[in-house]
Nucleic acid binder design. Structure first.
Lengths: 261, 261
DNA sequence: CGCCAGATTGAGGACGCTCAATTCTGGTGG
DNA sequence: CCACCAGAATTGAGCGTCCTCAATCTGGCG
C-alpha cells in the first residue's frame, strides 16, 4: 500500500513518517520567529496529523476552483502558486520552500483562486483544515500566529509586485535570489549555497520575464562574479553585491522577532 | 479643538461623528459577505471606537518603518499602499476604497513595511489595534472574519501581480477599472459610474506603467466606447467589453458568500 | 489674470520579447 | 559502454511595446 493514487508519479505515504514532523518543526520555527508561543502551542503544532505525498515536476497539487479540506506544508522541493491569463500565460505569485505552509489561508478561505504546483520535484505534508482551525480556536496566540503567517505571505506578494512592476530584469532576478537565500536561512538551511530547484522558465514566470531573458540575466550575474551555479546548486559569491544589484532589503520578510506591543 | 495636527491639510474630528460608523457598516457588510457573523459580532464591530481624519492629496497616512497602534478604515476617497525602489520608483500595491480596512493586518504585524498614502483626497477612521484584537479574542467567528479579510486582500495582490507581470498595458488598465467597479458594487455603491479619484500617474504606479502610457490606454478604451470620463467620474459603457479586454474574472475578489464547510 | 496640477500628444530610443537554432545534461535502453 | 532522448540551458537576430523627454493644453483656484 505504497500508493493510493493512480498517477504513477505521486505517492502517498502513511502519516507516521518523520518528514512531516520535521517540516512542522521548520514551520514552527518560523511562526515563533514572529510571535511568541506557549509550550502548549508548540506541542499542538508538532503533533499536527497529516498525509505525506511526493510529486514529480510540474504536477498540480491544488487545482483552480477546487474547495480544499487541507493545507499544504512543503517538506522538500519548491511549490509554486500561480495565476494565468485567459491566453494561458502563467504568473507565479509565490514560491514555497521547505517549512512553508503554502496555503494556510485556505483554512479560512477554502475556495481556490490561485492553484499550486510542484516546481521541480516536491514533497508535501497535508494538514486537515479542521485540525488547524481547532488549534486556532483553542489558543489565541496560535490563532494570531497563523493569521500573521498569512500576513507575511501577503507582504512578500507585495514586494514581488514592486519587483515586477518597477525593477529592471537584472534587479528582478537578483532580488529573487536574495529572497530565496534569506528564506532558506530563516528556517535554518544554508544561506549562501542552496539548491535552486527551479527551471529558468519558472524563474521567468515568477518575475514577469521570459525564460530566455532570465538566462541572459543569470549570465550577467555570473560574469559579475556575484553568483555561481553548479548543476542546480546556487552559490552566492558576493552577497552585498547581489543585494545591491537586486535593491534588496529583507525587512518585508519579517525574519527577526519583533517585540509585541 | 478642531485640529490636533500641525499639518494644515489634515484635520482630526471628535469620534462621535457619523462617518466613521457608516464606514464600519460598509466594512461589516464585506466581512459578512465572506463569513456569517452573529448579532454580537455585528454590534461589536459597529461600536468600534476611533478617530476621524481627513487628508489632502498624496499625504502620508502611515509611514515606512513606523510601528502602528491602529488600523485605517477608509471612509471616503482612496488610500493607496505602496512600495518603492531605492531609486525612488513607486509601485502602488493596493487601492482601498470606502469600507476597506486598509491595514487590518497591522493589528497582527504592526511594523510597517508598506506605507499608506491618500491618493487624492481621503477620509480615514482610525481604530485602535487593542480594540480589534480584543474583539477577535472574544469571538472566534470575528477573529476568523478578520483573518479572512486579510487573506482576500492578499489574493487581490496576487491578481495584481498577474496583471502587471503578464498582461499588456491596455488589459492592465481595463482590469483595474473592472476591479474597482466590482469593489464599489460590493459595498453597495454604484457599479457602472463611480468617481475615479486617481490621477493617471497613480494608475500608472499601480500598474507598472507610466502615467503617459496610461493616458494613451485610456484614450484607446474611450475610442472603443468601452468607458467614458467626465471630470473624475468614470462611466463604464460596455461592461462585457471592458471585462473582455481586461481579461477580468471577479472570482479572486470573493464577493459572493461562500458556504462554509 | 496668472498659476499649477493634471491631462494630452508627439518623436525617438531602450529593454525585453519572439522565434529559432544549438549545446548541454542526466537518464534510459541496448 | 555507448547511443539515444527529452528537458533544460544557451545563444543570436530582429522586432514591438512601453519608456523618456519634451511641449502643449485644460480646468480650477487664488
Amino acid at each position: 500500500m505504497m500508493s493510493i493514487n493512480h498517477d504513477p508519479e505521486t505517492f502517498v505515504y502513511p502519516a507516521d513518517m518523520n518528514e512531516g514532523q520535521e517540516a512542522l518543526a521548520l514551520w514552527l520555527r518560523r511562526l515563533e520567529l514572529r510571535s511568541p508561543l506557549t509550550n502548549f502551542d508548540r506541542e499542538t503544532v508538532l503533533s499536527f496529523p497529516g498525509t505525506l505525498r511526493r510529486y514529480a515536476s510540474s504536477r498540480d497539487i491544488v487545482r483552480l476552483g477546487e474547495r480544499t479540506q487541507q493545507s499544504c506544508l512543503v517538506v522538500d522541493g519548491i511549490v509554486a502558486r500561480f495565476g494565468q491569463t485567459s491566453e494561458g500565460h502563467r504568473q507565479l505569485t509565490a514560491f514555497y520552500i521547505p517549512g512553508d505552509m503554502a496555503d494556510l489561508h485556505s483554512a479560512v478561505l477554502p475556495v481556490v483562486t490561485a492553484p499550486l504546483q510542484s516546481a521541480m520535484t516536491a514533497t508535501v505534508y497535508f494538514v486537515p483544515h479542521d485540525v488547524i482551525r481547532r488549534a486556532g480556536e483553542r489558543s489565541a496566540t496560535l490563532a494570531r500566529a497563523f493569521w500573521r503567517d498569512c500576513v507575511v505571505d501577503a507582504q512578500v506578494a507585495s514586494e514581488w509586485l514592486l519587483n515586477v512592476g518597477r525593477r529592471g530584469a537584472l534587479a528582478r532576478v537578483a532580488h529573487l535570489l536574495c529572497e530565496l537565500s534569506c528564506r532558506h536561512f530563516a528556517v535554518g538551511l544554508t544561506r549562501y549555497e542552496f539548491p535552486l530547484n527551479l527551471t529558468q522558465t519558472h524563474i521567468g514566470e515568477a518575475l514577469g520575464l521570459t525564460g530566455v531573458h532570465v538566462n541572459r540575466m543569470m549570465r550577467a550575474l555570473r560574469s559579475q562574479s556575484l553568483v555561481q551555479t553548479e548543476g542546480n546548486m546556487l552559490k552566492i559569491l558576493d552577497w552585498a553585491g547581489l543585494a545591491s544589484v537586486g535593491d534588496f532589503d529583507p525587512g518585508y520578510l519579517h525574519m527577526k522577532r519583533e517585540v509585541d506591543d
